[in-house]
């Protein structure tokens, strides 16, 4: 038997990618790449555990351990204050998958293979970040269920509940692009693990996610108040509890857009130069 590599004609290929890459081609490539990750996800028990168990643990720990000790002005029940913060932190932490996954693909030579294919430059990263968004949606649903069991309720409108959730997912998606850039820049899976996570601790804790920033030391308060993550938490919290989300909502949306544009540009540029 021969390998049958003799047919040179591209007639077998849907469209000759050489001549033109349309937006539809690009989207199709991105969907193919997203499909790869989504197919793998259920086969990766440790990751799935991280997607489900870690968020459940966070919700339980913070609610049960700190619930009795922390009082927040304006909120009779700490859970109503806390849950949006936990949700936001967990989905933002979830963005680190993007960095680690890309670093892994890079170290295995898969990025080289993908870069040698006639596909849109952005497709691999769009596909990757999109599949990570899907994973985050899954995490989000699990957290929501646990929070409901603990007594958390949406006090505002349905639109507020949906809007707050979408806002957090969108914000975490913008962070996936930061992580994509990190994952393609650091050089090893281990480094990606550290580099993707470390900075998110101060970012999410020096914020309004768990406590009222006015209880923090004076010098830290302005940092916490202007932290993009505080804007996100405040907006989601207001939407969930039927309060007025502005101006935090506009800030949070602005940050989401700005981060996405800047880091998508940087990550895609990095992708077309990166090599193992």
């Amino acid at each position: 038997m021969t390998i049958d590599n003799s047919s040179r004609a591209l007639s077998d290929v849907g469209s000759d990618p050489a001549t033109s890459l349309t937006l539809a081609d690009g989207l199709r490539d991105a969907a193919t790449e997203a499909g790869r990750h989504l197919r793998i996800m259920p086969r990766n028990p440790e990751v799935l555990g991280f997607v489900v168990i870690q968020p459940v643990m966070f919700v339980l720990l913070f609610s049960v351990v700190f619930g009795g000790a922390i009082e927040v002005p304006g909120f009779a029940d700490y859970d109503q204050f806390l849950m949006p913060g936990i949700f936001a932190q967990t989905v933002v932490f979830g963005s680190s998958f993007t960095a680690v996954g890309l670093a892994e693909d890079l170290s295995k030579g898969l990025i080289d293979r993908l870069r040698s294919l006639p596909i849109a430059r952005s497709a691999v990263l769009v596909g990757r970040t999109f599949s990570d968004l899907v994973r985050n949606v899954l995490t989000f649903v699990v957290m929501l269920a646990v929070a409901f069991v603990l007594g958390f309720r949406f006090e505002g409108s349905i639109a507020g509940a949906i809007g707050g959730s979408l806002l957090m997912l969108a914000f975490s998606y913008s962070f996936s692009w930061i992580q994509a850039w990190i994952g393609l820049s650091v050089g090893s899976v281990e480094a990606a693990n550290a580099a993707s996570f470390t900075w998110m601790f101060p970012l999410t804790f020096v914020s309004s996610a768990f406590v009222d920033p006015s209880t923090m030391p004076g010098w830290l308060q302005p940092v916490a108040k202007h932290n993009p993550f505080t804007r996100l938490t405040n907006a989601a919290r207001a939407l969930y509890n039927g309060l007025d989300p502005s101006p935090d909502l506009w800030w949070a949306l602005g940050w989401t857009g700005l981060i996405t544009v800047i880091f998508a540009t940087m990550a895609i540029r990095r992708f077309s130069q990166v090599s193992k």
Binding site: T32, G35, I40, K108, D112, L117
Partner: peptide
């Protein structure tokens, strides 16, 4: 062109068939 690098660049968590079909998809077959 086809490229086979120094490291077997396969997606470990997909089957052999899925790996091949993945590349086929990228070539829009």
């Amino acid at each position: 062109i086809g490229l086979t690098g120094q490291y077997a660049a396969v997606e470990e968590r997909l089957s052999g068939r899925e790996n091949l079909e993945l590349v086929g998809s990228f070539f829009r077959l």
